[in-house]
Amino acid sequence: MAGNEKSKSRMEQAKGKAKEATGRAVGNERMEAEGRAEQAKGDARQAKEKGKDTFRH
């Protein structure tokens, strides 16, 4: 389960980064902001999983 969550967080981060770059390229501020939000969500999920790993070992 933890591996699945970690891969989800990486995918969210990558998707957010791509969305932010696309928004910046076309001048769409909303898309850029959504990309940053997705990256933050991925970062939070990754931090949660690292915390879980710390207590497991």
Rank of each mutant, 00 (worst) to 15 (best):
residue 23 G to Q: 07
residue 44 A to F: 00
residue 19 K to D: 10
residue 32 E to Y: 04
residue 48 K to A: 11
residue 40 A to T: 11
residue 27 G to E: 10
residue 19 K to P: 00
residue 2 A to N: 09
residue 49 E to Y: 01
residue 2 A to K: 09
residue 20 E to F: 11
residue 40 A to L: 04
residue 16 G to E: 05
residue 56 R to D: 01
residue 28 N to L: 10
residue 50 K to H: 02
residue 47 A to Q: 10
residue 28 N to D: 15
residue 31 M to V: 05
residue 40 A to Q: 10
residue 7 S to M: 13
residue 12 E to H: 06
residue 22 T to Q: 15
residue 57 H to I: 02
residue 24 R to M: 06
residue 31 M to R: 12
residue 21 A to Q: 15
residue 7 S to E: 15
residue 11 M to L: 12
residue 56 R to Y: 03
residue 6 K to Y: 04
residue 11 M to I: 13
residue 8 K to E: 06
residue 25 A to W: 03
residue 55 F to Y: 06
residue 35 G to W: 09
residue 1 M to D: 11
residue 19 K to F: 07
residue 19 K to T: 14
residue 17 K to S: 13
residue 6 K to D: 05
residue 2 A to M: 12
residue 18 A to L: 13
residue 13 Q to P: 04
residue 54 T to M: 08
residue 51 G to A: 07
residue 36 R to V: 08
residue 5 E to Q: 12
residue 5 E to L: 15
residue 11 M to A: 14
residue 45 R to T: 04
residue 36 R to K: 15
residue 38 E to K: 13
residue 28 N to H: 07
residue 15 K to M: 11
residue 12 E to W: 14
residue 43 D to R: 14
residue 5 E to I: 00
residue 49 E to L: 05
residue 51 G to F: 00
residue 19 K to E: 15
residue 47 A to K: 13
residue 14 A to S: 13
residue 26 V to I: 14
residue 23 G to R: 11
residue 15 K to F: 05
residue 19 K to V: 00
residue 7 S to P: 02
residue 54 T to D: 02
residue 41 K to V: 04
residue 10 R to N: 14
residue 29 E to W: 09
residue 54 T to E: 06
residue 22 T to S: 12
residue 4 N to P: 00
residue 6 K to E: 08
residue 13 Q to C: 05
residue 43 D to E: 14
residue 42 G to Q: 03
residue 52 K to L: 04
residue 24 R to Q: 15
residue 39 Q to Y: 09
residue 8 K to D: 06
residue 3 G to V: 07
residue 52 K to P: 01
residue 32 E to W: 05
residue 45 R to M: 05
residue 32 E to T: 08
residue 4 N to A: 12
residue 21 A to V: 02
residue 24 R to W: 01
residue 6 K to L: 10
residue 52 K to V: 08
residue 41 K to Y: 01
residue 18 A to D: 15
residue 17 K to F: 05
residue 27 G to M: 10
residue 33 A to R: 14
residue 46 Q to K: 10
residue 5 E to W: 09
residue 41 K to H: 03
residue 15 K to V: 14
residue 9 S to Q: 03
residue 25 A to V: 11
residue 20 E to Y: 10
residue 27 G to S: 07
residue 34 E to Y: 05
residue 25 A to P: 00
residue 40 A to R: 12
residue 45 R to C: 02
residue 34 E to G: 02
residue 22 T to N: 09
residue 8 K to F: 02
residue 31 M to T: 07
residue 15 K to E: 06
residue 53 D to L: 05
residue 40 A to F: 00
residue 45 R to Q: 07
residue 46 Q to E: 13
residue 13 Q to K: 13
residue 21 A to T: 09
residue 47 A to W: 00
residue 24 R to K: 15
residue 38 E to Y: 06
